[in-house]
Write a protein that binds this DNA or RNA. Structure first.
Lengths: 201, 201
DNA sequence: GCCTTTAGAGACGCAACGTCTCTTGCTGTC
DNA sequence: GACAGCAAGAGACGTTGCGTCTCTAAAGGC
């Protein structure tokens, strides 16, 4: 079949250049992320991502075994971990609210259909992401104890993670967008009474 | 194809008889439930359910618009609601543990891959099922207050539902089967301190 | 400057979806 | 007791997306 080799990209990009290695991979992940934002996880297809990245499916499959893995990689690449900047507002209440707000933010940028889809497909996905939030809370609590704001940071693990657990529940099962009210309720009605050793009056 | 009409159930059923109405529907739901147990939600197909029920796909689509709706109907048909028998053990701690144990049971019979799958596909699924657990807890708490076991049943809504919310979180994100330990931690470390107005010591 | 790797493109077979069509048994009505 | 109409049972059909495979030619290593 006679290819008109010299023709520079009928469609709009220089076909003469060919990406490789890290550069290519970054563009693949960007394409996946863009596709995710545009059509959502349920309707994201390998074909769609490949087309958007102006490449073939094989290039994707060479790197990730399936849709779920690709999307997880795209998320990791585009969304920073909360553990990287543990908030420090100077007070326990502010710190915890900041942690929760960061979770809300991160989840808003991912979209909860995506999370549901991933949990269904990539079963073994991400226990890691959950334990991390426990570490963040532990660190926030240690600082509060050091300031003398609470009697001790040695709390039952359930108590340590109660705020993030409740928020996660809310994020995944509530359809309407979260209000700040929800965050303050979690902190003021449940979390703080428990860690201060004074339940609600 | 000559059917040997008189043969009662060569392969196991009389092809000469044709089911209708409620009888048929019940068998369709049973088939869906059996299929769910056997291959799991991810690999449950309309074709598979139809074949198991010895019928055609159209019979299914006439009743339910898609997989998710069919499975939800099958679940409703096969799994009783916890609200039907609110436990009454004579004490608050026992009641709450019984509610949680019932949730664990129900969820074990459904399987959490199924839940993940449904949440991904039937987005608007089941806000109802969640509010119901809140009602159950409210009723348990009212009885405890009437017995004088706790100062008041007028608690912030977050506190009322904290135990079921935490358990739901655990059920959906933990891969290994839950231990009783988890249940008692939720109740003793979080729930009871909050409702008794005495946080952990 | 040859040789290996792999990007880019798309064909292929498979599985399941959801729709449509067809025949034929069941049921309510006159 | 005949007849009309509804829907069961069965499967063909077009479509979509998966994951694999094949092929050519561009990059880069040595």
């Amino acid at each position: 079949m006679g290819d008109d080799g010299s023709g520079t990209s009928s469609g709009g990009r220089t076909a003469a250049t060919r990406r490789r290695g890290a550069e290519l991979e970054a563009e693949l992940l960007d394409a996946a992320w863009a596709e995710l934002a545009e059509v959502g996880y349920a309707r994201l297809t390998m074909e769609g991502v490949a087309a958007r990245a102006h490449t073939g499916k094989q290039v994707l499959y060479r790197r990730w075994p399936n849709r779920a893995a690709l999307v997880v990689a795209a998320m990791r690449d585009n969304v920073g971990s909360i553990a990287d900047r543990v908030p420090d507002t100077g007070g326990l209440r502010g710190d915890v609210l900041a942690v929760l707000a960061a979770m809300v933010d991160r989840q808003r940028s991912i979209g909860n259909n995506t999370l549901h889809g991933l949990m269904a497909e990539a079963a073994d996905l991400d226990t890691h992401a959950f334990t991390i939030m426990g570490d963040v809370m532990a660190s926030v609590l240690r600082r509060a104890a050091a300031r003398g704001e609470i009697p001790t940071a040695e709390l039952p693990p359930r108590v340590t993670t109660v705020a993030v657990d409740l928020l996660r529940n809310e994020l995944l099962f509530t359809r309407e967008p979260l209000t700040d009210r929800t965050l303050t309720e979690i902190v003021d009605d449940v979390f703080l009474p428990l860690v201060r050793g004074e339940a609600h009056t």
